[in-house]
Nucleic acid binder design. Sequence first.
DNA 1: CAGTATCCCGTGCGATACTG
DNA 2: CAGTATCGCACGGGATACTG
Lengths: 138, 138
Amino acid sequence: METEYLKVTEREDEPVDGMQPFDVLNPACPSRTVLRHLTDRWTPLVVGVLAAGPARFGELRDQVGGVTAKVLTQTLRSMERDGLVVRRALATMPPRVDYELTALGRTLVEPLDALRGWAEQHAGEVLEARSSYDEATL
Amino acid sequence: METEYLKVTEREDEPVDGMQPFDVLNPACPSRTVLRHLTDRWTPLVVGVLAAGPARFGELRDQVGGVTAKVLTQTLRSMERDGLVVRRALATMPPRVDYELTALGRTLVEPLDALRGWAEQHAGEVLEARSSYDEATL
DNA sequence: CAGTATCCCGTGCGATACTG
DNA sequence: CAGTATCGCACGGGATACTG
C-alpha cells in the first residue's frame, strides 16, 4: 500500500495513535524537502548563531564566515518560509532587520548543534581517515 | 590572530587543555568540509539504514528510496574515505559487498537520526508554515 | 550483483554592481 | 544597512547503457 501525502487537516491537538506518516526513506515523502532544507549549506550555521539570541542581518553575515548577502538572504527567506525564523524589519533609515528563531526553530538548535559539534570534534579523525584513504589509493 | 589548520601531529591520547581548533563558522576551517559531507543528500539516509546493522549494496539501494547506483556508490565511497564506513567485498560470483558503520560512523547515528527524526516529526508544521507564507506572499 | 561509463542538466552558490 | 539585480558556472546529482 502506498502512503499518500495529503495535507493534514486534522486538529493537531488530538494526536492520532501511532501516527507517523512521514518517512524520509520514501522519495515521495515531503519530509525529504524538510530534511534537505535543514542540511542546506548555511542553515545549520545560521541556526547556530541565532541560538545565542536574535541578530541583525549584518551580524549574521559577519559571524557566518564566507556567506554573501545574497545567499544569506535566500537562506533566511527559506527558513522564514519554513517557520524556523521570524524577520522583523524596522523601516528606519538606515534600516534595521532582526532575525530570531521561532519556537519551532529553537527545537532545531539541539540537533543541529549536535551535528556541528560532531563535525568540529571529529574533524581530526576524518582528516586522518582521508589521508589514509588517499594514500592507500595512490 | 589567524588559526592555522595544520595537520594535527600530537598524540591524541594526551588531550590538550581547552583545545578546540575547529570552528565551523570559519570559512577556512576543514570542519566545514566535514559538515558538508554529513549533510550530503544521501549520507543521513545511508547512516540511518546502516544504523540497524551491516547491509549489502542492493539492500541499501532498495531501502534508500530514489537513489541511483551511481550516486549511492559515490556517497558510500565518500563515507568510506571519511572513515564512517567499511566496505567489505567478497570476490565471489555473483559478487557480494557489505557496508558497515565504523566506530566513528556509529557516533554519527544519534545526531543524524535526531535530524531525521526532526524532519519527520515536524514536517507537518513546516508544511503548514510554507502554506501560510506562500498564501501571504500572493 | 555491484558496480562503471557516459552523457547531461538544474540549481545552488558565488562575484560583482547597484539601490531605497 | 540590508538588501536586490544580473550574470555565470561548477558540481552534485540523475538517466541510461554496459560489464566483470
